[in-house]
Amino acid sequence: MKKLVAVLLVGLMLLLLFINMFDGSLEFNKMDLADVDGNYYAKNPIVSNMVTSVVVDYRSFDTLGEVTVLFVSSLGVAFMLGGLTTRIKFKHDDSFFLRIGVKVLFPIIVIVGVFMFVHGHLTPGGGFPGGALIGGAMLFKYISDSKYRAKISAFKVLEGTMGSIYVLLGIVGILVGNYFLQNILDIGELGNLISGGLIPIIYVLIGLKVGSELTGIFDHFMNEEV
């Protein structure tokens, strides 16, 4: 009975959305290509990857807020699971193949992650996926070895330092230039590795910060009560 009601309710929502979408009142189906803002960013390029120039230059303040949200969520996880100290015990023994495979794969994944956030302004990717790759590599270490513990205090220091440098760069923007997080450095030639002023620096900071935050979250989930 409950499932029937749910199906009817969801079907009604679907019907309403479709009616609104295709009778022209919301006009999702008629997109004016000349109105697309992408051309503005293409005519005023800061770096090759326009998504990066939106995320780290035009809307850098939003990104600072976003990084803060991730920091607060890792703080919340630490607050809720921080009392647990013993490493969790898996129901199965450590797999030999997984352990050796992780030993081979770990440096490769970390290098791909670092490549991704260093080249975030030229190719698809950037600080967040690169940081997530580093966090995933640490998760591999945790699931392959039942006694493994990362040096979580070092990751906490790294995370705090990176966040503080991001805020300090914003304040330097006020002091040297005109507004918070202004891109004060020389933008350079489009498409070079060292170009875009502050953008690669900030993306490296974000990548390291996201990687250490995700590692902290994984570490807290890998603990259990005695």
Partner: peptide, 19 residues
């Protein structure tokens, strides 16, 4: 070019979803 602004917003949304 496709509009990069929604893509940037979705990047934000994915990260907040992880949190």
């Amino acid at each position: 070019f496709a509009d990069p602004l929604p893509q940037a917003l979705v990047l934000t949304a994915i990260v907040i979803g992880v949190g």
